[in-house]
Write a protein that binds this DNA or RNA. Structure first.
Length: 423
RNA sequence: GGAGAGAUGGCUGAGUGGUCGAAAGCGCCGCAUUGCUAAUGCGGUGUGGGGGUCAAACCCCACCUCGGGUUCGAAUCCCGAUCUCUCCGCCA
């Protein structure tokens, strides 16, 4: 949520920022409701103060055995006016909240301005495509030929958009998960968390998937629970409505979780292979930090995610997303893309974002400096990494001409010291 | 799923209609005392909003899980919801 105070103080800046995000918002309407709201609140509080005085006085007189009827009548007279103001206040407040909850975060000042993915900027590239003296297969053929990736049976069980990994390929995924969690917890200072995969709607509002992305998520209507689209949701809400101490920050969490996405807007795209699934696994990195630390922390998380790819020996590049391609809540985002020679394309395996205080305002996550007033923390998160596309990267890059796949060094301890995947 | 009990400030825990934003203890902060530590004494110590101020002081409103209701007045009475705990049942 944007700071209402900022909208009041500098509506032009807000308008500009929203526009860069591709959002045309009626800021004047907000400001008008906002003004009206504070007038109503002031008036209402004056009535309350009056009523409190009267009640106090009635108590005193009653104890003194004096007559209280006149005062009681005066107090009762206030009620209808009070009720009316209360209704107006509630209405204004919910209108304002509805507007605020739908306004995206502002991009940081130096984020490249653009309208779509074509204007994203490549800010780093690591490695080079591996030497392959043969024509590399796409992972869907490679996996099927190994007998370890079965699209047909996955569809039989769950319909389109699901995968079925088996044998050494299923083990490879588990190895990757364990490797990444070990790396982040042992070397990067994250605390591992096991999170709920079903969450309340309020949690999704807190991390800013709702209301905008409602159509992207699976919902259990009988219980008003939602399947998480990412572990970012539970992780960001761990400290919702809390006031942390400065000494507790930063808090760095990592979690493995499945992610469930309806991909409602992507029908027909990436229908083959593991690239776009209704369910996939991900290791997530999430940080709560001091405002002045968040810029540096964003680069740190990016580095932690990049290190996984480097250690796996995968050729990748880093994009800074332009204003028009960033997500609703993000103030700056880096995407990590791994090169997949079989498909012949770059695949996004991580998205690392800072939200500033945007999520913290929504979820009510604050901290207190020594002797100070509570302030909102900054939240950041990044994938570290998303499994299916990393598997694609490993398969397509490490495949051999005979259809077997070399296992990257760092994963071998997690694969029983096996060195290759072979049918 | 059935039966019951409960939800008060950072924590423990009093409080059944007015002087309760809330006793007491613990914790924390400050000061005093003190070879050091410990102990002791005194004072302070919630959150949000609005007003006020250069900044404070200060003033007002709201908050005793949440939402309704009764009442001039609710932590306290009534209704509903949520959550927690115990027992039974079921279950990976």
């Amino acid at each position: 949520m944007l700071d209402p105070g900022l909208i009041r103080r500098d509506p032009e800046r807000v308008r500009r920022g929203l526009l860069a995000k591709g959002e045309v918002a009626d800021i004047d309407w907000f400001l008008q409701l906002d003004r009206e709201g504070s007038e109503v609140v002031t008036e209402l509080e004056q009535l309350n103060a009056r009523k409190n005085r009267l009640s106090e006085e009635i108590g005193k007189r009653k104890r003194a055995g004096e007559d209280i009827e006149a005062l009681r009548a005066e107090s009762a007279e206030i009620d209808p006016k009070k009720k009316q103001l209360e209704e107006r206040k509630d209405r204004l407040r919910s209108d304002l909240m509805r507007i605020l909850m739908r306004l995206p975060n502002l991009p940081l000042d130096d984020v490249p301005v653009g309208t779509g993915s074509e204007q994203n900027v490549v800010v780093a590239t690591w490695g080079a495509p591996r030497e392959q003296s043969f024509r590399p297969k796409a992972h869907w053929d490679l996996g099927a030929d190994l007998g370890m990736l079965d699209a047909k049976r996955a569809a039989k069980v769950a319909g389109s958009g699901f995968s079925l990994l088996s044998g050494q390929l299923a083990q490879l995924e588990r190895a990757l998960v364990n490797y990444m969690l070990d790396l982040h917890t042992r070397e990067h200072g994250y605390r591992e968390v096991g999170v709920p995969y079903l969450v309340l709607g309020t949690s999704l509002e807190g991390s800013s998937q709702l209301p905008k992305l409602e159509a992207e998520m699976y919902r259990c209507r009988d219980d008003d629970l939602w399947l998480i689209p990412t572990a970012e949701v539970p992780l960001t809400n761990v400290h919702a409505r809390e006031i942390l101490t400065q000494a507790e920050l930063p808090i760095r969490y990592t979690a493995f979780s499945p992610c469930f996405r309806r991909e409602a807007g992507a029908a027909g795209a990436d229908t083959r292979g593991l690239i776009r699934m209704h369910q996939f696994h991900k290791v997530e990195l999430m940080v709560y930090t001091l405002p002045e630390e968040s810029d540096a922390e964003l680069l740190r998380i990016r580095e932690h995610a990049e290190s996984v790819l480097r250690n796996l020996g995968l050729h990748y590049r880093v994009l800074e997303l332009c204003t028009g391609d960033m997500s609703f809540g993000s103030a700056r985002t880096y995407d990590l893309e791994v090169w997949a020679p079989g498909c012949g394309r770059w695949l996004e395996v991580s998205s690392v974002s800072t939200f500033g205080d945007f999520q913290a305002r929504r979820a009510g996550i604050r901290f207190r400096r020594e002797g100070g007033k509570p302030e909102h923390v900054h939240t950041l998160n990044g994938s570290g990494l998303a499994l299916p596309r990393v598997i694609v990267g490993v398969l397509e890059n490490y495949q051999r001409e005979d259809g077997s796949v070399e296992i990257p060094d760092v994963l071998r301890p997690y694969m029983g010291w096996r060195t290759e995947i072979r049918a």
